[in-house]
Design a protein around this nucleic acid. Structure first.
Length: 851
RNA sequence: GCCCGAGUGGCGGAAUGGUAGACGCAGGGGAUUCAAAAUCCUCCGCCGCAAGGUUUGCGAGUUCGAGUCUCGCCUCGGGCACCA
């Protein structure tokens, strides 16, 4: 070979690795290391986000293998979900065929990347082998009381007669029908995740290798609060509604109450609805629009005075009006609140709109009571002065005020302190075809009956159609017809399938024994769990990661995971997204039509299609297939090779940050890798004699590179590791050391590059006569003696501004350093005869003269 | 609306509270070449001839010293329980 030729050398080394079985995960006497990237959804094409994500994991996997670990680095497919059904609806075909074809395509696109994956463990969540085990666990969890049924609200499209996902609700309307969405109740299956709320919250403290922001987001999501639950006695309420239970986290503001409010789904609202057309009309309005918190909280706040009054618990003669309000959720607390407009902005807005009083309860510690233009909501830890307090001191923190109010209510017997969590149980039922069937049978005689384990998997039928909306399982002529596992009589299968989050909540465990005839294999799980390093997108910070933590606990409780695995991910890294501009034009109806970057000509002022049509440019957003702002890595690989793609996505941007994709850098990366190849080729043939001083300098540069690259990888700062490799390449190139020293340096470079550009590293290693595969070579160690600098350059600041610089021996005593610093001509000039007031010497770092 | 992040040259970014701009891209100049590509050398935050001044989204503060810590804003991004 006379030049760097990735098209030739990359397949060659991939074949060598395959033949040697380098990446097969084995249980042996080495310490194990399990590195896992979130598995991909098989959209059909890999994109740069995948390349970035899996290269990061691969860098870690290869580095840990070099460090002597037995590494497990598997790959699979999160293969159930709505896009397959959407594709079937739009283009015909079948979700199963679409999904497996996509998997085959994506696998064939990923393999050329040279990832150190044990492909023998691959599976897809839509494999009956996988989802059958999931059904078995569902039954175990049902038996253990971890699953139950209750009514829950869904988005209902009244035209398509189907349930909509939140993302299918756009501006309160169904995405296909355009009909206003309604909220409708269905009986659905739930996991009792809220039973674990306390543990899931407390255990966050132990996840010391998780990003602080993720732990904080989860803690806020779980939302532990201490508050007061009490009942208002009602006046003029319908029979059976003598009391309205409310929960509040601010009982200290009770004397600022100006109204009570209940959810439109509150039992009292339902009772009034039946009797009063005006109420019925109002609650119907409340039930319009989607179910998402975002929609509910940003919708216009509306209310209706029911005419019912309640007695204030601290003064029975004080009556508060009861309103029905659209922002009170039946799912939270008791579905009823009292409003204190002075200290809650939402209540303030509501009171202002409907002319309800605003009565301050407390003011800032040193302030006087004045009319409020907005709610006064200081942190609960701040001290405030209570002007309408009823418990505790006049001046106390909000937290103290709350505690005192609870204590008083309990002592007087009209309320009790209650700890609540915001976390709600996990609704897992989906009215869709392409998911794991819930293995339940509905029998007219026996009711809800679990399917027998020997009848698992309950497989999806293949003969379904998607020519009309709704769940094909529900209208399948025969599939649901079965016999009752309990009585043997005719019965009907549950036609709901599971949320795809269930699939992705235990795949990490299945990878430890992917072909086991039980969900997990105890010995394998015991050896491989936990995942030592998990890598995924920040968009999963709450839902996926919290569900997985719950599922691991539920699996432990049902005997499918060891106790040590209840926190399945020891370390978490959340990589940033790869973003790109979005290009769109409008169709005749004004709806957006998206265009791929390769179909768009970008100029400095704007963009157009190849036929000249002007294109709207939306600034960078997460790459998404539906928006078509995706870049095809296969083009980069075809042109420059996988190593260029790998190096490029690791360089420049820190891994945790989003990166805006530009094609400009790929060619520059290729040039650099070509240069490294040429250097290796030259050095391999060099006969330059030893040159002691230069050889030592190069050995020092090598030690520096080992230290910096190692620190970069260990610290998940791959961009810094790459920067160190650039610097090292420059040092080798400029060095006039002898051939032997240069070969040492270059062989080390091959080892240090191996995690990022494994193919080139093998080639360089082979050119230099390295033993075996560099993929199996141990990680180099830096000689500490070579890392120590003899002298150090210290900046001298005068009043915090740098004015001079001195170079002194590394271990010179501070007194001598001071003397030299004060004798420096620039220092003397800038002091202008002034006597220094103070001298700060930070050894090895800086000198600051305060004049 | 609520929760969580991010913001540094033309660009991606670096910087245990201690020389802001490592490393790379783009760009300027030069060498090589008949010429070009490739390669190599070199310069490169901004203002200024220079001395010097100025500079990390904006505004305050703490400190001998702040990109880094605190408070208040602005902008962008992620999540908000049926997108995965």
């Amino acid at each position: 070979m006379t030049r760097y030729d990735p098209a030739a050398l990359e397949p060659k080394w991939q074949a060598e690795w395959e033949a040697a079985g380098v990446f097969a995960a084995r249980r042996d006497d080495r310490p194990k290391y399990y590195v896992l990237e979130m598995f991909p959804y098989p959209s059909g094409r890999i994109h740069m986000g995948h390349v970035r994500n899996y290269t990061m994991g691969d860098v870690v996997a290869r580095y840990k293998a070099a460090c002597g670990y037995s590494v497990l680095h598997p790959m699979g497919w999160d293969a159930f979900g709505m896009p397959a059904e959407n594709a079937a609806m739009e283009r015909g075909g079948h979700p199963r065929d679409w999904t497996y074809a996509n998997i085959a395509d994506m696998r064939s696109q990923m393999k050329p990347l040279g990832l150190s994956i044990d492909w023998a463990r691959e599976f897809a969540t839509c494999d009956p082998e996988y989802y059958g085990q999931q059904q078995a666990m569902f039954l175990d969890m049902l038996a253990a009381g971890l699953v139950y049924r209750k009514a829950a609200v869904v988005n209902w499209d009244p035209v398509d007669m189907t349930v909509l996902a939140n993302e299918q609700v756009i501006d309160g309307k169904g995405w296909r029908s355009g009909a206003p969405v309604e909220r409708r109740e269905l009986t659905q299956w739930f996991f009792r995740i809220s039973d674990f709320a306390e543990d899931l919250l407390d255990s966050l403290d132990r996840l010391t290798h998780w990003p602080e922001k993720v732990r904080l987001m989860q803690a806020n999501w779980i939302g532990k609060s201490r508050g007061l639950q009490f009942a208002f006695d009602t006046v003029d309420a319908p029979a059976g509604f003598d009391r309205i239970e409310v929960y509040t986290t601010r009982p200290d503001t009770l004397l600022g109450a100006s109204f009570a409010a209940i959810s439109a789904d509150h039992p009292l609202a339902r009772a009034l609805e039946a009797a009063d057309p005006a109420v019925a009309e109002f609650v119907a309005r409340c039930r319009q629009g989607g179910t998402s918190a975002e929609e509910i909280e940003t919708a216009e706040k509306i209310g209706l005075d029911t005419g019912i009054r309640v007695r204030h618990p601290l003064n029975p003669d004080w009556h508060l009006p009861v309103w029905i309000a659209n922002f009170i959720l039946m799912d939270y607390g008791t579905g009823a609140i009292f409003g204190c407009p002075a200290h809650d902005q939402r209540d303030f807005d509501f009171a202002t709109k409907y002319g309800l009083p605003v009565t301050p309860v407390f003011v800032a510690e040193d302030a006087e009571e004045t009319p409020l233009a907005e709610a006064f909501v200081p942190p609960k830890s701040d001290r405030v002065r209570y002007v309408r307090g009823f418990a505790g001191d006049a001046v106390q923190t909000g937290d103290q005020g709350v505690a005192a109010a609870i204590a008083l209510a309990e002592a007087q017997g009209w309320g009790r302190g209650v700890t609540r969590f915001r976390l709600r149980d996990w609704g897992l039922s989906r009215q869709r075809y392409w998911g794991c069937p819930i293995p339940i049978v509905h029998c007219p005689a026996c009711g809800v009956v679990p399917e027998k384990k020997e009848n698992l998997p309950v497989e999806l039928p293949h003969d379904v159609t998607f020519d009309r909306p709704g769940n094909p399982l529900d209208r399948h002529p025969t599939w649901a017809a079965t016999t009752c596992p309990a009585c043997g009589g005719p019965a009907r299968r549950e036609t709901d399938t599971m949320d795809t989050f269930v699939d992705s909540s235990w795949y990490f465990a299945r990878f430890t024994a992917p072909r086991a005839s039980t969900p997990t294999d105890a010995a394998e799980a015991d050896y491989w769990m936990n995942v030592d390093q998990y890598i995924g997108g920040i968009e999963h910070a709450i839902l996926h990661l919290l569900y997985s933590r719950f599922f691991a606990r539920a699996m432990h409780r049902t005997g499918h995971l060891p106790a040590k695995a209840v926190e399945p991910f020891d370390a978490l890294f959340t990589q940033g997204m790869v973003t790109h501009e979005i290009y769109l034009t409008r169709d005749a109806a004004g709806r957006p039509v998206y265009h791929l970057p390769e179909d768009v000509i970008r100029t400095e002022t704007g963009a157009s299609l190849k036929d000249g049509t002007a294109v709207e440019v939306i600034p960078s957003a997460k790459m998404s297939k539906s928006k078509k702002n995706v870049v095809d890595p296969m083009n980069i690989i075809a042109q420059f090779g996988a190593d260029t793609a790998r190096w490029f996505v690791m360089s420049d941007s820190p891994p945790e940050r989003d990166v805006e994709w530009t094609a400009a850098g790929a060619e520059a990366t290729f040039k650099h890798l070509s240069r490294v190849w040429r250097m290796a080729d030259d050095i391999a043939r060099s006969t330059a004699p030893d040159a002691p001083a230069e050889d030592l300098a190069l050995d020092r540069a090598t030690a520096r590179a080992i230290a910096d690259v190692t620190a970069g990888i260990e610290g998940f700062a791959f961009n810094k590791a790459i920067a160190a490799l650039y610097a090292f390449a420059n040092a080798v190139q400029k060095s006039s050391a002898g051939a032997a020293a240069k070969r040492r340096a270059m062989a080390t470079m091959a080892q240090l590059m191996q995690p990022m550009v494994p193919h080139l590293a093998e080639e360089v290693w082979a050119l230099l006569g390295g033993q075996g595969l560099v993929a199996r070579a141990p990680w180099p160690k830096a000689d500490p003696a070579l890392l120590v600098q003899d002298s150090v350059t210290l900046p001298i600041q005068i009043n915090g501004k740098k004015r001079a610089e001195i170079t002194v021996p590394r271990d010179m005593p501070a007194a001598e350093v001071e003397e030299i610093a004060l004798a420096d001509p620039d220092v003397i000039r800038f002091l202008g005869g002034a006597v220094p007031k103070k001298l700060i010497v930070v050894p090895g770092r800086i000198i600051n003269v305060v004049a």
